[in-house]
Structures are given as C-alpha cells and as structure tokens.
Design a protein around this nucleic acid. Structure first.
Lengths: 209, 209
DNA sequence: TAGATTGTTAATCGATTAACAATC
DNA sequence: TAGATTGTTAATCGATTAACAATC
C-alpha cells in the first residue's frame, strides 16, 4: 500500500464507518453509493472515488454489502487491532476520555494515566490508575503503549511529548494547544485543538450577521 | 463582506492568531510573511493570500505589525465580542470545558449547564450552576445565549439540538457523535468528533507500518 | 437478456504556490 | 534612491464532480 492517500479522504472514512454502522444496526443489507450519498449529504461519485482508493468493495448492479464494507473500512482504520493508550495529564479532559467507554469499545483501551500532582497518585478513575510522571519511563518499557493522549497544559506538553517519543511511543493524540514536531519522521500526531474549533465557530457566527 | 471565504482559510486563522500571540508575548514588533511561514511550517504565499482575503494588513518593505495583525485576526474571528455559552449535558466533557479558563478569557463565558440527572441540579462546577433541562426554555428566554455546547449522548443530542434551535439559539458546538442538520439555514454547527479524530490517528499509525 | 450500479477515466473546480509589479 | 516585502495576478497542483464503459 504505497500510493499516498490524501488526508481529505482519510478524514471521511470514520464518517462512512459510522453511517454504515447505523445501517447495519437497522438491518440494512445492501446500499448503493447513490443512496448513501443522500443519507450522508455527499455525492455518489465521491463515495466511489474514496472507496476505490482501497479496493473494489462493491459489485456492479448491486451496490455495496453494508456489513462487508463496514468491516473493510474498520480494517483500513485499524479498528481490527487493539491500540493501547495512556493519558498524560490527569485533568478533566483526561477524565472525560477515560470515562467515555466508546474508545475502549473501538479498541483503544486506556492502560494508565500520569500526572505531576501527588494527590492523584494511586487514585483510580473508572478503574484506571493514576501514576506519577516519574513512573512513565518504566511503565512504557513494561507495557506496549501505542498511543499517548496528551492532556496537559501547553507549557508541559513539549517536554512530555519529547519524553514519550524518546521512549519509543510512536503516536500522540494531542489536546495541548501547541504544534508538536519531531525529528523522528514516523511519529504520528493528531491534534484536537478545542479553542481553534471554538474560534472557527465564532467566525462563522460573526460572518452570518 | 460577501465574497464567501473558504473554510480552509478560516481553519488556519486561529493558528495564525496563536503564533502572533506568542510573538507578541516575546515582544516581537514586526514579522514578514516569510519569517512567519518558517515558524509555522507553511508558505509565505499562503499567508499573504489568506490575509488578503480580509484586507491589506501589511506594508511593503516592512512586513506585518504583530500587534496590529493579531488584533485584526482577533476581530475577524469575533474575539472582540463576548459570546455567552451554555453547556447541555453536564458530564465529564462539560466539566472539562467549564473548568478550562481559556475559553472564558477568549470571550466565551459559560453561563450555565443543563442535565437530566436530578442529583446534579443546583450543584455548581467551577462556579457554574447545573440546571434541569426543563429549565432550558426559561433560561434561554431570560439570557442571551450565543452558543450551546452539546455534550450529551448521541440519542439525546438530536432532541436537545432541535429544542435549542427552536428557542432561537443560532450556534451549536457539537460534541455528540451525530451530524446535526437544521431547516433554519443560519444555524451554525461546529463538530468535535473525538472518535473520528482517534480513528484518523489510528489510520495513520496503521499506514506507516 | 435488460437494468442497475460499480470502477475508472476525463472534465471541472478550487486551493495552493510561484512570480512579479507596486510601493513603502 | 535602493532594498525589502507586500498585494495580486498567473500557473500549478490536487480534489471533486461528471460521464460512461465494464460487468454483475
């Protein structure tokens, strides 16, 4: 798999996955790109183009088998594998993530949380233990950590991120309001910048007036 | 202001705002599009194009005045105005939002939270009171509510969203994993789909292998 | 076989980058 | 005035949409 697929396409995959999951639950067996495009408010053409980046999942004259396509997109997204997660920074956002069962169900269990605040050490949130940041190194060495969610303040995010990458963690789900960059080319970063999102909303409010 | 500006541009504005804010704090007075592009890992051309959608903020031979540009982008994003916010669904994510002072500092104070759980009624989180969802109507009528953050489960999100829009709330910051659509054309929705974000990360992990 | 719908190529549209004249 | 750097037009690149032959 080497023809680099654009992030525009990747960003749409979870949405396909969600709509197909809904259809599956409703017991729908097959769907055409056109029917799906109506539901999703997109175009049949885009759907077919997107899917054909990964292979021919449909059948002429029939459309797509919902269950099969759902499974295939799941595999493309790596949802057939378990990705162990740790959360660095045990604040409110961390709590929200660790209490949100859905991530675990999707194959992203949280193994542990880390913080600098000694009052939290040893406490558990939703059954997940909070460790001292000092224990990060030994923890990462003893456990397979696929993803580190960074939910700490801007100022501490850089150091934590570098430490994590130094320890071999290859992917970071970054909630801190900074742009992380690494020398190591195969570190993957996904940013969730809530204030950027809020500002975008604000712009769209303002521009409608 | 009518030449519709693309969301691709808008999505970059908060990032400009952040970098300019950092420069401001460092005491930098002026910056050229080229210097800024190096810092931001983008292109000088893109920066100039983006900014010129809104006006000529620079000066030939000089570059951009950091403070002036920062302020102007703030105004474009509507950060010179206060946007009152309520949070519907007083779960962990709601707590994270209401405890994150930054939003208030940016001009997005939270007025109140709403939930269905009677145990929460009357409680305050970070000084913000939790009301019953039944009180939503009277609250919205008595207070100016610019933004409603939706942090409740999928199943309840539709109803809450429709109720809000029916009451005249024009913009929704949607954390529920559904796509909201409204007849009212000037309702603005900004989605934060955390699981989509996580899946995108997962894809990028998988595709690097 | 006829009808439906995909997979895929071609056309269009929009966004990014390059180039350069205008101007501070 | 000379140098720097913008604002803006033109060129390129990439993503979306349209069209249609392939095929179930």
């Amino acid at each position: 798999m080497n023809e680099q697929i654009s992030q525009a396409v990747i960003r749409r995959l979870p949405r396909y996955y969600r709509y197909l999951g809904d259809l599956l639950m409703q017991g729908t067996e097959r769907i055409s790109s056109n029917e799906l495009s109506v539901k999703m408010n997109s175009t049949a053409s885009q759907i077919r183009q997107d899917l054909n980046n990964f292979g021919g999942f449909g059948q002429q004259g029939y459309g797509y088998n919902v269950k099969f396509l759902h499974d295939e997109i799941g595999k493309i997204l790596g949802l057939d594998k378990v990705h162990n997660m740790i959360i660095v920074g045990a604040g409110n956002l961390a709590k929200a993530i660790v209490r949100y069962d859905k991530f675990e169900r999707l194959g992203f269990p949280t193994l542990a949380m880390f913080d600098v605040n000694p009052e939290l050490f040893g406490k558990t949130i939703n059954g997940i233990k909070v460790y001292s940041l000092d224990e990060l190194e030994s923890f990462v060495k003893e456990n397979r950590v696929d993803i580190a969610a960074l939910t700490l303040p801007k100022q501490n995010a850089y150091d934590a991120a570098n430490k994590l990458v130094g320890l071999g963690v290859k992917s970071i789900w970054n909630f801190a309001h900074v742009d992380l960059e690494f020398e190591d080319e195969d570190v993957v970063v996904e940013n969730v910048h809530l204030s950027d999102s809020l500002m975008q909303l604000s712009y769209n409010i303002t521009s409608r007036k």
